[in-house]
Simulated scan of single mutants.
Amino acid sequence: MSGGWVYIVSNKPNGTIYVGVTADIRRRAHEHREGLVEDFSKTYGLKRLVYAEEHASITDAIRREKTLKRWPRAWKVRLIHTLNPDWNDLYETL
């Protein structure tokens, strides 16, 4: 089994956020940027990859995603600020 990623996308600094999980962060970030999937992120224009963390297995990534989704928004915002205080789009760094 291969690794996985937990990521957060947003529409602007301190804007709406979405927590997701994927085995292919480059493909998934591209899908968000281009609005290729009809979901919450497309509805709210969440195209900016503001946070990503790699995990050894997709199972670990899914477990972490479920944990983050239960967190209060303030905790998620603080997590983004620890690695990306300016909420830059990390897509180009992948």
Rank of each mutant, 00 (worst) to 15 (best):
E65L: 07
H55T: 07
F40C: 00
E31R: 08
V50A: 02
T59H: 12
L46Y: 05
A52D: 01
R26H: 10
R27T: 10
S41D: 07
K42P: 04
T82E: 15
V77C: 00
R70P: 06
G35V: 00
L90Q: 09
K76D: 05
N88W: 12
L83H: 11
G35D: 03
G35I: 03
R33Q: 15
L36F: 02
T43Y: 10
K69Y: 02
Y44R: 10
K66D: 13
E38G: 02
R27G: 06
R27D: 07
L49Q: 03
V37W: 06
D86K: 13
V37H: 12
I58Y: 12
T43P: 00
I25S: 04
V21G: 09
L83G: 14
T22K: 04
T67L: 14
R33L: 12
N84G: 04
W87S: 00
V50S: 03
P85V: 11
V21K: 01
N84A: 04
V37G: 07
H81R: 15
L79F: 08
A23S: 15
L46I: 05
K42C: 02
T59E: 14
H55S: 08
G45E: 05
I62Q: 09
H32Y: 13
R78D: 14
R70A: 12
Y44F: 12
D89G: 12
D60E: 15
P72G: 06
N88T: 13
K42V: 00
Y51P: 02
L83F: 11
W75N: 11
T59N: 12
R27K: 13
K69H: 08
T22A: 07
I25M: 04
W75I: 12
V37P: 05
T43R: 07
K69S: 07
K47F: 12
R26A: 14
I62F: 11
L49M: 10
D86C: 11
N84M: 07
Y44Q: 01
R70W: 08
E65N: 07
D86T: 13
V21D: 03
W75F: 09
F40Y: 15
V50G: 06
R48P: 00
E65A: 03
A61E: 05
T82A: 08
F40V: 05
